[in-house]
Design a protein around this nucleic acid. Structure first.
Length: 192
DNA sequence: CATGGGATTGACT
DNA sequence: GTCAATCCCATGC
């Protein structure tokens, strides 16, 4: 997708990315769950300002922000908002589309629902590592593309973000309703 | 230089 | 439901 796609309100980008496709090497998956992060709220890494770690977040949109979580997992984000504004969309879950055998091998499971249901799981399944940080999301090495699988707005749910302790009230987590590949069960209520 | 806290996951009770 | 693994980085002295 063109950088202009990402140079918008990060919450809108998070909503728009649901239904797009992520590609890396032989693997591909349909985005079914995202979360938005913006420098103005405490849960965003960019909240502390521009540091060596957050420099990518403040850089041009349409690039990958990949960081190590809990010393173990690589988490994939798409940098959003215009250059100079720190914001990104966390890719939280995918429906596996291509390279399923490779994903199963990397994840050590045969269960398709467990391959990419979670931000740490999907990077492991697709082989996306920290060296993808600060690279453009145009296919070198990671691509995000539009898809014919795009669904209507009615299918998009919004709820609070997961796994954070600050700014927990913001309904900036988005997912396809009823999709069996989301990372965690959806809380009752809250349609978008 | 020492410290503390994670945008998680898998194993276990 | 609980809990530890594991390491980067921001902060503070």
């Amino acid at each position: 997708m063109r950088p202009g796609f990402y140079a918008r309100d990060v919450v809108e980008v998070a909503r728009s990315l649901v239904g797009c496709v992520v590609r890396h090497g032989e693997t591909a998956g349909l985005i079914v769950e995202t979360e938005a992060y913006h420098f103005s709220e405490e849960a965003c890494h960019a909240y502390v300002g521009c540091t060596p770690r957050t420099r990518v977040l403040f850089g041009p949109p349409g690039r990958a922000y990949v960081y190590l979580s809990y010393g173990i997992h690589a988490l994939l984000n798409a940098v959003a908002e215009p250059d100079g504004v720190g914001a990104a969309v966390l890719i939280r879950a995918l429906e596996p589309l291509e390279g399923l055998e490779l994903m199963k091998r990397r994840r050590g499971t045969e269960r398709v629902e467990n391959l990419c249901a979670g931000p740490g799981r999907l990077t492991q399944a697709m082989g996306i590592a920290l060296d993808a940080n600060d690279t453009p999301l145009d296919g070198r090495p990671v691509a995000i593309e539009r898809s014919h699988a795009l669904r209507a707005n009615d299918d998009l749910l919004a709820a609070r973000r997961i796994g954070i302790t600050r700014a927990v009230e913001l309904p900036w987590r988005f997912a396809l309703r009823g999709n069996r590949f989301v990372s965690r069960p959806w809380p009752p209520g809250l349609r978008s």
